[in-house]
Design a protein around this nucleic acid. Structure first.
Length: 665
DNA sequence: AACTGCGGGCCGG
DNA sequence: CCGGCCCGCAGTT
């Protein structure tokens, strides 16, 4: 029997190898072979030896004529990855809606009984820039083809980056996009995924919607401000104008109730209501808890996201409130909010300032515009931008334990080790799903006393800031700063303020969550070999106008009619005769490898390096993110921890940007 | 406006 | 024949 099973596996692998010959991406082939091997483990007798690679205990195939009736339903997985199967209850709303964290588009499989969806990938910055928070740009592709086309080539949301959005297509299923299958049977919802996503997770859907919503809000506010200025000019300004403006903000904050439908609203007010119901049930809110440590949330480019007006939400709060605006002048205002929050979140009223409570991982703060926002600390580089409320879910991820996506793949095989040997813990074990949770450890020597000392040395603003943050994080029960995670940053950034006299509170808070380590060069190397194959810093640039349909459907990009060259070098040679003003050519030349490599390579001169010095990639490899030794990390500088008690060197990200003038045809 | 599901049609293997 | 993809349509959010 054992011999028979081995033969089956061998034959299966041979078949897969044969099938993968058509793919030049050896890594994909290797991965797909692995996938097939998994599929070959459907034999019950082989379950034990391979069950650790299966993210599902189900053994059926979605195409089977009959599917087994299950007694226990699975908890809904928003970020299914790998070859997995789940059976959801018909009552699961997300299941009924075929929700997925991945941007999945409908695909016709000519089977009305089975809904098939394929992954659209993720939008990334052509310059692979890092935001102030250290996050990478991972925008969610629009499902609608038309809307997605409009996204391509848009300016990078990072205001300091001149890059463009590029669609990083998914080729995680044997070179094809990862596919999801949904089937309703026996009153249950059967789900099957095929393939492993070979790209970062896009921002959550709610974030993309909220971004749209915020854009509208900002436009409306801009119009309103224009009206106000016109009126002022007509009536003349008065000495009490400032107070009036503050009062207007207050009223607006409370009166600005949206009329969105309950499940569609992306504005903060409604979200509070959604969280409220979840908290009142004593549960983690399930809806909209849609982010993870891999998913930085990017928003509209502006000078400072912390300074953007967004004041829909004020009727919620948490004891860790930081009010960077009018804090001392408007204490009663804060109390109003706190009282209101207590009303909305009675279950949270006893958690005052207790950030060590593992059930609450987010904090609230106030933007300068007067809005109060939750800070969902879901990850080292996953610091959300302030306009969006993130529900409580994930713990910060230890930067040392979370591999960079561009060095590996985000395989959510909870309970098993990833290629780096790090154990992913199933969130369902903790009653929290879809949130890799690894606690951030505090660095020794950075305590609150040193923080306050530094604060004294620095300006009033810094001291004020440190006090506010420190108080916010102070655990009254243990008389300690509850969250070392934040404590580190309070120290780091406040101590740096003296060196940057122009730094404002907003700037500090932009850096409120540490930028970590995925940028650290000495990241553990991949042991799987996959990353080495995917390396490539090859620019995956896109044409800015739809191209004609390629007869070779195997080489074309999915769905959007926009092609990515399988081989950069080949493409480049094609463009070698193009003028330097050709945007594609320039982008491809200047972007290549710049985000990676050592610091010196980030200088403007790096763009002038001979082509041969760039990160060459195997033909057919188009992934722009590398993991090899030369191109596998991001901009970073080392600096001495300013704490008197801390002798550690810290990683400081820096944006080495290159201004490139692009001319689009 | 965008999302979602459906289905016709084309293409290549 | 199958799978992947494009496209249009209609209903929904």
């Amino acid at each position: 029997m054992a011999t028979e099973m081995v033969n089956i596996v061998v034959v299966t692998e041979k078949l897969r190898r044969l099938k993968c010959k058509k793919f030049r991406d050896l890594d994909t082939c290797r991965q797909s072979m692995m996938t097939l091997t998994e599929e070959a483990t459907f034999l019950p007798s082989m379950q034990d030896s391979n069950s650790d690679r299966m993210s599902s205990h189900h053994k059926w195939d979605i195409n089977d004529n009959t599917l087994p009736v299950v007694n226990e339903y699975d908890v809904f997985k928003e970020w299914p990855d790998g070859n997995c199967r789940y059976v959801y209850s018909g009552d699961v709303e997300d299941g009924r809606r075929h929700v997925s964290g991945w941007a999945m588009r409908n695909t016709n499989n000519h089977n009305a009984l089975i809904l098939k969806k394929s992954c659209l990938g993720v939008f990334v910055c052509s310059h692979d820039c890092s935001l102030d928070s250290g996050d990478k740009v991972h925008l969610r592709p629009a499902i609608c083809d038309k809307a997605r086309r409009k996204q391509v080539g848009k300016a990078c949301p990072n205001s300091r980056c001149s890059g463009r959005l590029e669609l990083m297509s998914c080729r995680g299923h044997c070179g094809y996009p990862v596919t999801h299958f949904w089937r309703n049977l026996h009153g249950a919802i059967y789900f099957q995924a095929k393939g492993i996503h070979d790209h970062p997770q896009p921002e959550v859907k709610a974030s993309a919607e909220a971004r749209r919503h915020n854009k509208i809000i900002r436009q409306q506010e801009k119009l309103m401000m224009m009206n106000i200025s016109v009126r002022k000019r007509l009536r003349g300004s008065s000495s009490t104008g400032v107070h009036k403006e503050i009062h207007r903000k207050k009223l607006k904050s409370f009166d600005n109730l949206c009329s969105c439908s309950p499940f569609e609203c992306t504005c903060a007010h409604i979200r509070v209501n959604q969280y409220q119901s979840a908290y009142m049930d004593g549960q983690q809110p399930d809806v909209l808890r849609r982010s993870n440590s891999w998913t930085p949330q990017i928003y509209e480019a502006s000078s400072s996201p912390w300074q953007r007006p967004f004041s829909l939400d004020t009727n919620h709060n948490q004891s860790g409130l930081y009010k960077s605006c009018d804090l001392q002048e408007n204490r009663p205002y804060i109390h109003e909010e706190q009282n209101l929050l207590s009303t909305l979140f009675p279950s949270m009223s006893n958690q005052s300032r207790n950030y060590s409570d593992s059930s609450v991982h987010n904090s609230a703060f106030c933007s300068k515009s007067g809005s109060v926002n939750f800070l969902h600390r879901f990850g080292s580089r996953g610091i959300p931008m302030p306009e969006i409320l993130y529900p409580v879910s994930s713990l910060p991820v230890d930067p040392q334990e979370r591999p960079d996506f561009r060095s590996s793949r985000p395989i959510d095989r909870y309970g098993e080790k990833d290629p780096f040997g790090f154990l992913y813990e199933s969130d369902t074990d903790k009653g929290v799903e879809n949130s890799p949770s690894v606690r951030v450890k505090a660095e020794p020597g950075c305590d609150d006393s040193s923080t306050s000392l530094l604060a004294q040395k620095q300006g009033k603003e810094t001291q004020y800031l440190s006090n506010v943050i420190g108080n916010s994080l102070h655990d009254t029960t243990t008389n300690k700063l509850c969250d070392d995670f934040v404590n580190i940053d309070v120290l780091d950034h406040s101590s740096q303020l003296s060196a940057y006299p122009d730094t404002t509170e907003s700037d500090v808070f932009q850096s409120f969550v540490p930028r970590f380590s995925t940028d650290i060069p000495n990241m553990p190397p991949s042991t799987s070999g996959q990353c080495q194959m995917v390396t490539s810093s090859t620019p995956q640039y896109v044409e800015l106008k739809p191209m004609k349909r390629n007869n070779d459907s195997r080489n074309r990009r999915p769905s959007d009619g926009i092609q990515t060259p399988l081989s950069y070098n080949a493409k480049q040679s094609e463009h070698s005769s193009q003028k330097q003003t050709d945007s594609n050519y320039q982008s491809s030349v200047f972007n290549e490898c710049l985000p990676f490599g050592d610091i010196s390579s980030h200088s403007a001169g790096a763009a002038q390096r001979p082509l041969s010095n760039r990160c060459d990639v195997p033909p057919g490899t188009t992934r722009p993110y590398g993991t090899d030794g030369h191109c596998g990390h991001y901009h970073s500088d080392m600096y001495q921890c300013p704490s008197a008690n801390c002798s550690q060197m810290k990683q400081q990200l820096c944006n080495h940007s290159i201004n490139i003038t692009l001319t689009y045809n």
